[in-house]
Protein backbone atom coordinates (compact mmCIF):
# COMPACT_ATOMS: atom_id res chain seq x y z
CA UNK A 1 0.00 0.00 0.00
CA UNK A 2 1.21 3.41 -0.89
CA UNK A 3 1.92 5.77 1.94
CA UNK A 4 -0.25 8.84 1.88
CA UNK A 5 1.29 12.26 2.17
CA UNK A 6 1.05 13.86 5.59
CA UNK A 7 -0.88 17.13 5.84
CA UNK A 8 1.23 20.20 6.47
CA UNK A 9 2.20 20.56 10.10
CA UNK A 10 0.65 23.04 12.51
CA UNK A 11 -2.99 23.31 11.59
CA UNK A 12 -3.71 19.81 12.80
CA UNK A 13 -2.60 20.35 16.35
CA UNK A 14 -4.40 23.64 16.48
CA UNK A 15 -7.65 21.81 17.02
CA UNK A 16 -6.16 19.88 19.90
CA UNK A 17 -4.94 23.01 21.58
CA UNK A 18 -8.28 24.68 21.10
CA UNK A 19 -10.08 21.62 22.40
CA UNK A 20 -7.93 21.61 25.48
CA UNK A 21 -8.84 25.21 26.22
CA UNK A 22 -12.44 24.54 25.35
CA UNK A 23 -12.66 21.67 27.82
CA UNK A 24 -11.10 23.83 30.49
CA UNK A 25 -13.62 26.59 30.02
CA UNK A 26 -16.47 24.11 29.76
CA UNK A 27 -15.60 22.83 33.17
CA UNK A 28 -14.94 26.23 34.69
CA UNK A 29 -18.18 27.73 33.40
CA UNK A 30 -21.11 28.36 35.63
CA UNK A 31 -23.73 29.54 33.22
CA UNK A 32 -26.68 29.69 35.52
CA UNK A 33 -27.19 33.18 36.81
CA UNK A 34 -27.99 33.63 40.44
CA UNK A 35 -31.60 34.10 41.24
CA UNK A 36 -33.08 35.27 44.47
CA UNK A 37 -35.78 37.13 46.30
CA UNK A 38 -35.15 40.83 45.95
CA UNK A 39 -35.95 43.40 48.53
CA UNK A 40 -34.97 46.93 49.38
CA UNK A 41 -33.99 47.55 52.97
CA UNK A 42 -35.39 50.56 54.77
CA UNK A 43 -32.98 53.46 55.28
CA UNK A 44 -31.06 53.47 58.52
CA UNK A 45 -32.15 55.85 61.22
CA UNK A 46 -30.56 56.19 64.63
CA UNK A 47 -33.74 56.17 66.63
CA UNK A 48 -36.53 54.55 64.77
CA UNK A 49 -39.63 56.65 64.62
CA UNK A 50 -42.66 54.49 64.77
CA UNK A 51 -45.39 55.70 62.52
CA UNK A 52 -48.77 54.61 63.75
CA UNK A 53 -50.56 52.62 61.09
CA UNK A 54 -54.16 51.56 61.47
CA UNK A 55 -54.37 47.92 62.31
CA UNK A 56 -56.66 47.00 59.44
CA UNK A 57 -53.96 48.04 57.00
CA UNK A 58 -51.38 45.74 58.45
CA UNK A 59 -50.90 42.04 58.02
CA UNK A 60 -48.82 41.15 60.98
CA UNK A 61 -46.84 37.99 60.60
CA UNK A 62 -44.83 36.53 63.41
CA UNK A 63 -42.28 33.77 63.22
CA UNK A 64 -41.07 32.65 66.59
CA UNK A 65 -37.92 30.88 67.64
CA UNK A 66 -39.55 27.50 67.09
CA UNK A 67 -40.49 28.46 63.54
CA UNK A 68 -44.20 28.62 64.33
CA UNK A 69 -46.08 30.98 62.09
CA UNK A 70 -48.64 33.38 63.49
CA UNK A 71 -50.75 35.77 61.45
CA UNK A 72 -52.64 38.41 63.40
CA UNK A 73 -52.01 36.38 66.52
CA UNK A 74 -53.44 33.15 65.15
CA UNK A 75 -51.37 30.14 64.28
CA UNK A 76 -51.67 29.41 60.57
CA UNK A 77 -50.17 26.98 58.14
CA UNK A 78 -47.60 28.24 55.69
CA UNK A 79 -49.72 27.12 52.76
CA UNK A 80 -52.54 29.45 53.85
CA UNK A 81 -50.37 32.53 54.09
CA UNK A 82 -50.62 33.21 50.38
CA UNK A 83 -54.44 33.45 50.52
CA UNK A 84 -54.31 35.35 53.78
CA UNK A 85 -52.09 37.98 52.18
CA UNK A 86 -54.44 38.40 49.25
CA UNK A 87 -57.42 38.65 51.54
CA UNK A 88 -55.79 41.38 53.60
CA UNK A 89 -54.66 43.43 50.61
CA UNK A 90 -57.87 43.15 48.64
CA UNK A 91 -60.55 43.31 51.27
CA UNK A 92 -59.29 44.13 54.76
CA UNK A 93 -57.03 47.06 54.06
CA UNK A 94 -58.66 50.42 53.48
CA UNK A 95 -56.98 50.55 50.10
CA UNK A 96 -54.33 48.24 48.61
CA UNK A 97 -51.86 51.14 48.46
CA UNK A 98 -51.86 51.44 52.20
CA UNK A 99 -51.46 47.76 52.92
CA UNK A 100 -48.36 46.82 54.83
CA UNK A 101 -47.00 43.40 55.57
CA UNK A 102 -45.16 43.32 58.82
CA UNK A 103 -42.84 40.42 59.49
CA UNK A 104 -41.59 39.97 62.99
CA UNK A 105 -38.96 37.31 63.43
CA UNK A 106 -36.92 35.98 66.27
CA UNK A 107 -33.15 35.82 66.26
CA UNK A 108 -33.45 32.05 66.44
CA UNK A 109 -35.83 31.69 63.53
CA UNK A 110 -34.19 29.59 60.84
CA UNK A 111 -33.42 31.28 57.57
CA UNK A 112 -35.26 28.61 55.62
CA UNK A 113 -38.57 29.42 57.32
CA UNK A 114 -38.05 33.13 56.96
CA UNK A 115 -37.49 32.70 53.23
CA UNK A 116 -40.54 30.45 52.99
CA UNK A 117 -42.71 33.12 54.60
CA UNK A 118 -41.18 35.88 52.50
CA UNK A 119 -41.78 33.77 49.42
CA UNK A 120 -45.43 33.15 50.27
CA UNK A 121 -46.10 36.84 50.80
CA UNK A 122 -44.50 37.58 47.45
CA UNK A 123 -46.49 34.77 45.86
CA UNK A 124 -49.69 36.28 47.23
CA UNK A 125 -48.82 39.64 45.75
CA UNK A 126 -47.74 38.03 42.50
CA UNK A 127 -51.20 36.53 42.12
CA UNK A 128 -52.77 39.92 42.64
CA UNK A 129 -50.39 41.48 40.13
CA UNK A 130 -51.07 38.73 37.62
CA UNK A 131 -54.84 39.08 37.97
CA UNK A 132 -54.66 42.83 37.54
CA UNK A 133 -52.26 42.54 34.64
CA UNK A 134 -54.53 40.09 32.85
CA UNK A 135 -57.54 42.31 33.39
CA UNK A 136 -55.84 45.55 32.43
CA UNK A 137 -53.36 44.56 29.77
CA UNK A 138 -54.32 41.00 28.89
CA UNK A 139 -50.86 39.72 29.74
CA UNK A 140 -49.15 38.13 32.67
CA UNK A 141 -47.30 40.46 34.99
CA UNK A 142 -43.86 39.14 34.04
CA UNK A 143 -44.51 39.67 30.33
CA UNK A 144 -45.48 43.32 30.74
CA UNK A 145 -43.34 46.28 29.85
CA UNK A 146 -41.60 47.92 32.79
CA UNK A 147 -43.87 50.95 32.57
CA UNK A 148 -47.01 48.87 32.81
CA UNK A 149 -45.53 46.91 35.67
CA UNK A 150 -45.01 50.19 37.46
CA UNK A 151 -48.66 51.08 36.98
CA UNK A 152 -49.66 47.90 38.73
CA UNK A 153 -47.05 48.31 41.42
CA UNK A 154 -48.44 51.73 42.16
CA UNK A 155 -51.86 50.33 42.94
CA UNK A 156 -50.58 47.26 44.73
CA UNK A 157 -47.22 48.12 46.21
CA UNK A 158 -45.55 45.41 48.21
CA UNK A 159 -44.45 47.01 51.44
CA UNK A 160 -42.74 44.71 53.87
CA UNK A 161 -41.83 46.10 57.22
CA UNK A 162 -39.48 44.11 59.34
CA UNK A 163 -39.70 44.86 63.00
CA UNK A 164 -36.71 44.47 65.26
CA UNK A 165 -36.25 40.77 65.91
CA UNK A 166 -37.21 39.44 69.26
CA UNK A 167 -34.65 37.69 71.35
CA UNK A 168 -36.47 35.09 73.40
CA UNK A 169 -34.19 32.19 72.69
CA UNK A 170 -31.03 34.06 73.66
CA UNK A 171 -32.32 34.99 77.08
CA UNK A 172 -32.89 31.41 78.12
Amino acid sequence: MKKRKLPPLGAGSMADVAFLLLVFFLIATTIETDAGLNLVLPPWTENETIQPVPEYNVLSIQLNALDDLYVEGEKVRLSDLNQRTKQMVLSEAKSPEEAIVSIQIDNATTYEHYIAVFNEVKAGYKEIWNDTALKKFGQKYDDLETENQKVILKTYPLVISEAEPSDFAMKK
Binding site: T33, A35, G36, A116
Partner: peptide
Amino acid sequence: PAATELQKL
Protein backbone atom coordinates in the same frame (compact mmCIF):
# COMPACT_ATOMS: atom_id res chain seq x y z
CA PRO B 1 -33.39 27.37 50.59
CA ALA B 2 -35.92 26.84 47.84
CA ALA B 3 -38.36 29.49 46.69
CA THR B 4 -40.69 30.12 43.79
CA GLU B 5 -40.82 33.89 43.36
CA LEU B 6 -37.28 34.23 42.07
CA GLN B 7 -35.88 37.12 40.14
CA LYS B 8 -32.67 36.82 38.21
CA LEU B 9 -29.69 38.96 39.07
